[in-house]
Design a protein around this nucleic acid. Structure first.
Lengths: 153, 153
DNA sequence: TGTAATCCCGACCAAATTAGTCGTATACTA
DNA sequence: TAGTATACGACTAATTTGGTCGGGATTACA
């Protein structure tokens, strides 16, 4: 239904959180998980992926944890999602190298590639820094404000 | 993983197919399903939705079937997806009226609303006519051409 | 050198979503 | 009135996602 997985969400939230706490040399997976009330072990796995992808530095042991490996401005939402969920393409065919197995179905795929590119472009244009700047938005009266929902339907 | 459902794909394909065959007064769900090798009953349900949404006209009985209710140029990919899959929002929170139940999680949602808007915008800018014009692209050597995949990863 | 905190990682189970089927009712045409 | 088609809801199956478990490797510090 064209939405991010929770894992990607969690990853973005965690990176945002780390970007907001540059004073700590490292925050553990548990620290971040507790801050948002999300499962610690799940977040741990996500942070491991981001580490492998080079966005985080990790340190084991007491007072260990994770810290941004790069400037928050240089980490795009795109690479985060890519690292966590793998490559995406909005149409169902073209899963990896298989291509579309259903004959002429991909007639639809080519025009929609433009959409895919646009999505990738916007996601690339958004950095962790951008997310961090939104610092618990003061004017928004709550998460269920209606104005955002209308645009979706 | 940020991709369309197969149902949405099928719906777009079917509309495209109908747009390409304006000479027939109506094509049955089976006709279209056979043309693409997709399950007829599933497609039938999808076409029923599109009919209820006003994009198709249906006729029961012999030689019945479906035909576009509007000009192919006036049907956007956006409304098709919306009719089939319902409203979407790329972040996991904000499902319908529930809002985000996980406390401060939505710190990420607001900046990503821009992404959502952009996606909706591109989808709105693509019409069934656009899809139909791509008429089994002659130059593409196959569905598994690599150039499109690279942009996703 | 030992212990506690922490990352690392693969296998596994559970929940949710999506895909697809079935059965029946209804509408239309010849 | 027989045959073909849509309409629609309930149901099952498959896939994907979310989350857990357990063992192992690092690191800091007493």
């Amino acid at each position: 239904m064209l939405k991010l997985t929770k894992k990607a969400d969690y990853g973005l939230m965690a990176l945002k959180y780390l970007a907001e706490h540059p004073e700590s040399p490292a925050l553990s997976a548990k620290d971040v998980a507790d801050a948002y009330g999300i499962p610690a072990q799940l977040l741990a796995k996500i942070l491991q992926r981001l580490t492998k992808a080079g966005m985080l530095r990790s340190q084991a042991g007491i007072n260990g944890g994770y810290a941004l490996a790069k400037d928050a401005r240089t980490i795009s939402a795109y690479e985060v999602i890519l690292a966590i969920d793998g490559p995406f393409f909005i149409t169902s065919c073209s899963k990896g190298a298989k291509g579309c197995e259903l004959g002429p179905n991909c007639t639809i795929r080519e025009p929609l590639a433009r959409v895919n590119e646009t999505i990738a472009g916007v996601l690339k244009s958004i950095s962790i820094q951008d997310l961090a700047e939104h610092e618990s938005a003061p004017a928004s009266p709550g998460c269920d404000s209606k104005d955002l929902i209308t645009l979706t339907g």
